[in-house]
C-alpha cells in the first residue's frame, strides 16, 4: 500500500490519476480505516488530503454563503459559533454521525463520497442546496451534491477527481432547515430512513422548499413532489399529508436486516412531516 500526503489538490488529483488498483482519499478515515481493518476494501494507494492548506477552514463568505474545507470535522462544525444558526439541519445531520471520537474525525465529504445511501449528512446537504468543488486533471468545476452519488458505494467522480471544497449557499431570510433520521436505538446506529427539509416562508406561506430522502433508494433522493406538496401552503394538515404521501411514493427501498420495504416507505412519510414542521418553526424564528 502506498501512502501519500500531497500539499495541493492538483497534486492529489495527479497522484490519483496515475495510481493503479484501488485508490482511496483519506479524510477522517472513519470509513476508509474501518473498511481496511475489516478487509472489505484494502486500498493500493491512500492519499491523505489533510496536509493541504486550509482544508479544515470553515469560512463565511461576504455574500453570506459558506465554504468548508474537506477535512473540517463534525466536531468543528458543531462548535462553530454561527454555522449552526444558519444551517441547523446540516450541522445536526453531521452531528448525528457516530460517537464523540468519530465526530473528531468524520467529514461531510467523506460521508458523501463513501456513497452510502444511508449517509446522514447527505440528505441535509441536498435539501440545503450544497455544491462541491471537484478538482480533476482538467481543472475545477462545481457539482450539486445530489449529482455525486450514483449507487451504493459509487460516485460520479472519475479517476483523478477529488473534492476540494464544500459550498453551502447563503441562508437568507425567513428560512430554516432540519434533518431527522429513524434508527431503532437512540444513537450509534445507521439510518433506516433519513429526511432533510429546507424551506423559505413569506409570512406563513412556504415559498421555496427542498426535500431529500435517505436510505430509501440506491442513492439519496431530491424529491420534487414533496417540495410541490408544501410550496404555497401554510404547512396545514392537508399539505403535511400530501408531503407524507409524496415522500412514501418516492421510496424505492430494499427489504433488509435494517428494515422492511413497508416500514421504510411508511416512516419516510412520517419523518418528512416531522422534519418539515421543525424547518417551518425555524423559518419563523421559533426554537425547534
Amino acid at each position: 500500500m502506498d501512502y501519500h500526503s500531497p500539499a495541493s489538490f492538483a497534486e492529489a488529483s495527479a497522484l490519483a490519476a496515475n495510481a493503479t488498483g484501488v485508490t482511496r482519499f483519506l479524510a477522517g478515515g472513519t470509513d476508509v480505516l474501518v473498511q481496511l481493518r475489516s478487509e472489505l476494501v484494502t486500498p493500493d494507494t491512500l492519499i491523505d488530503i489533510k496536509k493541504i492548506d486550509g482544508v479544515s477552514d470553515i469560512t463565511r463568505n461576504a455574500d453570506g454563503s459558506w465554504t468548508l474545507g474537506v477535512a473540517a470535522t463534525g466536531a468543528e462544525m458543531s462548535e462553530h459559533p454561527e454555522l449552526g444558526s444558519d444551517w441547523p439541519g446540516v450541522v445536526e445531520a453531521m452531528d448525528l454521525i457516530g460517537s464523540t471520537q468519530v465526530q473528531g474525525r468524520a467529514t461531510l465529504t467523506g460521508n458523501l463520497c463513501n456513497g452510502s445511501p444511508a449517509a446522514d449528512s447527505v440528505p441535509a446537504m441536498v435539501a440545503a442546496g450544497v455544491t462541491v468543488s471537484v478538482t480533476g486533471p482538467d481543472g475545477t468545476r462545481d457539482v450539486a451534491v445530489e449529482e455525486i452519488p450514483t449507487g451504493p458505494g459509487k460516485t460520479s467522480l472519475s479517476k483523478g477527481e477529488v473534492i476540494s471544497a464544500v459550498k453551502i449557499p447563503a441562508r437568507g431570510d425567513n428560512a430554516g432547515d432540519a434533518y431527522l433520521r429513524f434508527i431503532p436505538r437512540t444513537e450509534m446506529d445507521i439510518a433506516v430512513v433519513g429526511v432533510g427539509v429546507s424551506l423559505r416562508l413569506d409570512g406563513d406561506t412556504v415559498t421555496e422548499a427542498r426535500v431529500s430522502l435517505g436510505a430509501v433508494a440506491p442513492t439519496v433522493l431530491l424529491v420534487e413532489d414533496c417540495a410541490k406538496a408544501i410550496i404555497g401552503s401554510t404547512l396545514d394538515d392537508a399539505a403535511l399529508d400530501a408531503l407524507a404521501a409524496a415522500a412514501s411514493a418516492a421510496c424505492n427501498p430494499i427489504d433488509d436486516k435494517r428494515g422492511t420495504i413497508a416500514f421504510r416507505t411508511e416512516v419516510a412519510g412520517v419523518l418528512a412531516k416531522r422534519a418539515a414542521k421543525i424547518a417551518y418553526a425555524r423559518a419563523k424564528g421559533e426554537k425547534a
Binding site: F182, P184, V192, G259, T260, A262, F263, E266, V267
Partner: peptide
C-alpha cells in the same frame, strides 16, 4: 419487538 414488527 423491533419497530418494523410493532408497526406491522
Amino acid at each position: 419487538m423491533s419497530p418494523p414488527r410493532i408497526l406491522a
